[in-house]
């Protein structure tokens, strides 16, 4: 791969993949893609390819993790060994352990876990291919899979990242942009509550860059939220009409 400099990533307002500063990568979402899981979703976000499965509410295992007044949410974010340039060991890394925690905490406020005490709701996020922003795409998929499993939720959680490349604010960084850029800030958001459920940042932002970045992220989370709703509608309107056909 040719050596890129940060300046190469932002020439005449155009990024390496042809996007402008405020454009998302192409996103495809599909719901109900797995047979055995109670709920599932597949998300393509640029070159990210992510599969999410949800099981539950089901008996908590091991038993001692059960909570008397609510369901236990379990979450695993995991990258396939072949998902990145150099093979990644399948054992969970420190990064994956941290991301599993922050994704769980991003979804907890959305799930009406008090409806299912003593049970567990298990979320499995498998990153089949990763290209920057996989935790956000994972959250987008997990929200859909939870909805597909019929788990009552306050809202869908939508997520996307903003960052900075060669001094310019940029939406939804890809892997090269993240590596050569100066900052990356993933944000997860529940539109109905105007609430941030995940927020991380590394790099350097001035106060104004941060404020503008947060606005940009929220605005685009709202766009992703619409795509999530459409993905659910597509799945369930189809099943609905099939059902009508079958009953004729």
């Amino acid at each position: 791969m040719p050596q890129l400099s940060p300046e190469d990533l932002f020439r005449n307002g155009i990024r390496v993949d042809g996007r402008r500063w405020n454009e998302l990568r192409p996103i495809r979402m599909e719901v109900g893609v797995l047979d055995k899981a109670d709920g599932s979703a597949y998300v393509e976000h640029g070159k990210n390819k992510i599969l999410v499965a949800v099981y539950g509410p089901r008996e908590a295992h091991p038993k001692h993790i059960a909570l008397p007044d609510r369901a236990t949410i379990k979450c695993r974010y995991h990258m396939a060994p072949f998902s990145v340039e150099e093979r990644k060991s399948p054992a969970p890394s420190r990064r994956e352990i941290e991301i599993s925690k922050v994704i769980r905490e991003a979804l907890e406020p959305a799930i009406l876990s008090e409806y299912y005490p003593r049970t567990s709701i298990d979320i499995f996020i498998e990153v089949l291919q990763s290209d920057g922003g996989s935790r956000c795409a994972g959250i987008n998929g997990a929200s859909l899979a939870l909805a597909d499993a019929g788990i009552p939720m306050r809202d869908l959680v939508a997520a996307c990242a903003v960052g900075k490349i060669a001094g310019h604010l940029a939406l939804d960084l890809s892997d090269v942009e993240d590596k050569l850029g100066e900052a990356d800030m993933p944000v997860a958001y529940m539109p109905t509550y105007n609430s941030v459920t995940l927020l991380q940042m590394d790099g350097v932002f001035t106060h104004d860059e941060f404020a503008a970045g947060l606005e940009l992220a929220v605005e685009n989370c709202k766009k992703i939220y619409q795509m999530q709703k459409e993905a659910l509608r597509r799945q369930y309107l189809e099943i609905g009409s099939e059902g009508i056909e079958a009953n004729r």
Binding site: V102, E105, E108, P109, M185, M190, Y193, N194, S195, V196, T197, L198, L199, Q200, M201, D202, G203, V204, F205, T206, H207, F210, L214, V218
Partner: peptide, 17 residues
Amino acid sequence: EGRLCALQKGGMGYMTV
């Protein structure tokens, strides 16, 4: 320099913008 260099939200609830 007074710039932001890291953020981390934690906990099971949310914060407004």
